[in-house]
């Protein structure tokens, strides 16, 4: 265990009935690190990511985020989650709120930030993701790429220490993938700790400090991109890479 790990995943198991979605998964992530998780469908990538903010309860093991045991019943999960921004494949913006309200709602209600200040922060964030002119429209009026950028901004509005992304570009038309990845790359440059499940190998190669390959609920390989793509130690990984590259 490294002292400055902001996420410590230790011997985690997750069972759905008999199915082991996660088997003895351990992973330490340092503050500021960018970790990309790849692997075939059903290998447990989402389950692992969702365990980090307890959207999924784990069966065994422990996950510590910023010194707090996420799955300990005595820890305040709602507070821990404020440190963990999450971006979903299907955006999940609140359709009954304007773009601006999507961003200000949580900071106002959860952090007690006053309305005007929350608005100012939201406007800045919208500028950052390049859609400040859409602040007062409803999400249904936005393209997929715009919605996903708003979703990222919404998560950032809580000023989290860590951002989790679960296939943020998989639901997007190809021409919109770039704009979302650009926002994520900027975030990476600013030093955000990021855990990203994605099939975008270009992004992984460019941004990741480490790439984790999962198969059948296990972490098979965890390497920096330089060695990852040429890694031949693992037959499953070799086969996976030959399919996607």
């Amino acid at each position: 265990m490294t002292v400055n790990s902001i996420i410590e995943i230790k011997n985690v198991y997750k069972f759905f009935g008999d199915l082991a979605a996660l088997s003895d998964v351990s992973l330490d992530i340092k503050a500021g690190e960018k970790v990309v998780i790849i692997g075939p469908s059903g290998s447990g990538k989402s389950t692992l990511l969702r365990s980090i903010n307890r959207l999924e309860e784990i069966s065994r093991g422990s996950i510590v985020v910023d010194g707090q045991d996420v799955h300990d019943k005595s820890s305040n999960i709602n507070n821990i989650r404020q440190e963990l921004g999450m971006v979903f494949q299907s955006f999940n913006l609140f359709p009954h709120k304007t773009v601006l309200e999507n961003l200000t709602m949580a900071p106002i209600k959860l952090k007690g930030i006053d309305k005007e200040e929350a608005k100012a922060i939201a406007v800045d964030l919208l500028k950052k993701v390049g859609i400040n002119e859409k602040a007062n429209v409803y999400p249904s009026k936005l393209s997929g790429g715009q919605q996903q950028r708003v979703a990222i901004a919404r998560a950032l509005a809580m000023n989290p220490k860590i951002m989790l992304f679960d296939e943020p570009t998989s639901a997007l038309d190809p021409e919109m993938i770039g704009e979302v990845l650009d926002v994520m790359k900027n975030l990476a440059v600013e030093g955000m700790t990021m855990v990203v499940v994605t099939h975008e190998m270009g992004f992984a190669r460019e941004v990741a400090d480490r790439i984790v390959f999962m198969d059948d609920g296990r972490i098979i390989a965890c390497e920096p991109p330089e060695t990852f793509f040429t890694c031949t130690d693992h037959p499953r990984l070799k086969q996976f890479l030959s399919q996607i590259l």
Binding site: N53, L55, N79, L84, S90, N92, A106, L110, R154, A155
Partner: peptide
């Protein structure tokens, strides 16, 4: 209502 709405809200820290 899609379950994604609940997950989005919970992951922001809403109880």
């Amino acid at each position: 209502i899609d379950n994604g709405q609940t997950e989005a809200a919970r992951s922001l820290g809403f109880d």
